[in-house]
């Protein structure tokens, strides 16, 4: 039976019976999320919406899944489990829920895992071709922020932007530039044993599993990038590191959760980026006409929002 690229890794983590049930669906539907709970039916989210599989997973089946998800090595994913997710080969993110063990007010680990939520990562080569002309010009790359609600394809687009900028875009006269990707959750590069499984371009270095703040500073110091790319910024530390990157003459491309450009202004944490006029482009995504719909592209230069699309 034919299995689509990247979905072989997903099928491999399921117990045999569940795997067989899902195999056909992978071919027929474009599944982007699977939710499995002990003693509850399996939920699948695809481009056709939500569907329910009437199979009730047992505790043992979930335990076996966790073994395979963690590559039979829970100790190697302690930090990930503490954060509530594990990223497997192929860049697919698996959220976990269960009994949290607390220590000094922080989650130490999660035991008795009772549900998993598998988000399937898809690499779509060329999905950023439409917006790249707003981000890149012959002479430079604009500091860009992608604003998007969850599940609208911001990581997929970010990955393709990295590839385009790194390889260069001859049609726009844009030369390839050195790119550093700070991939905190292994979602952008989908690294396995440190090697990106996704095509991020020939001039891209990836700091995999690295905290954004530390990674941004490390990349500036050691990799001499022209462009820094990271996903889902939001903490003061991230912003400080981005400011440092800007002050070092490095351009930045990043994403945040949001719906409109106003969401950027509403959050205090982004004040420094806006006041210092660091951000030059804001791209708004939605899933109105399918995942990755580009709603608007704004030019933010000079404190004004000029709609470019």
């Amino acid at each position: 039976m034919r299995i689509l690229k990247g979905e072989k890794e997903i099928i491999g983590i399921f117990p045999l019976e569940i795997g067989n049930l899902l195999k056909d669906r992978f071919l027929k539907e474009q599944i982007y999320e699977i939710r499995i709970k002990i003693q509850k039916p399996i939920l699948i989210y695809s481009k056709h919406g939500e569907s329910i599989i009437n199979y009730i997973p047992s505790k043992e089946e979930l335990k076996s899944m966790i073994q395979k998800i963690s590559n039979y090595s829970l100790y190697a994913y302690e930090e990930d489990i503490r954060q509530g997710f594990i990223t497997i080969k192929g860049g697919h993110r698996i959220g976990i829920a269960g009994e949290c063990v607390m220590e000094k007010g922080e989650v130490k680990t999660i035991r008795n895992i009772s549900s998993v939520n598998i988000r399937i990562s898809r690499e779509i080569i060329g999905c950023s071709d439409e917006i790249i002309r707003f981000i890149a010009s012959e002479n430079r790359i604009y500091n860009t922020i992608i604003i998007s609600p969850p599940k609208c394809g911001k990581t997929t687009i970010l990955r393709d932007i990295a590839r385009n900028i790194s390889n260069g875009i001859p049609s726009l006269g844009v030369k390839g530039r050195k790119v550093a990707v700070i991939d905190e959750r292994s979602e952008i590069g989908a690294c396995h044993l440190g090697i990106p499984q996704s095509d991020l371009g020939i001039r891209t270095d990836v700091l995999d599993n690295c905290l954004k703040r530390e990674g941004l500073i490390m990349a500036i110091r050691s990799l001499s990038p022209e462009i820094l790319i990271c996903d889902e910024i939001g903490t003061k530390g991230d912003i400080e590191a981005l400011m440092m990157a800007f002050n070092s003459g490095v351009n930045i491309i990043t994403t945040i959760h949001g719906f409109t450009v106003e969401d950027l202004y509403k959050r205090k944490v982004f004040c420094d980026l806006l006041d210092n006029q660091i951000l030059e482009r804001a791209i708004i995504l939605s899933n109105r006409h399918g995942i990755g719909t580009i709603e608007n592209v704004f030019s933010l230069k000079g404190g004004e929002n000029i709609c470019l699309k």
Binding site: S70, N71, Y72, S73, Y75, A76, E78, L193
Partner: peptide
Amino acid sequence: IVYGATPLPEA
């Protein structure tokens, strides 16, 4: 395992 946190198949 203890010092390198290497996953079992690789180790």
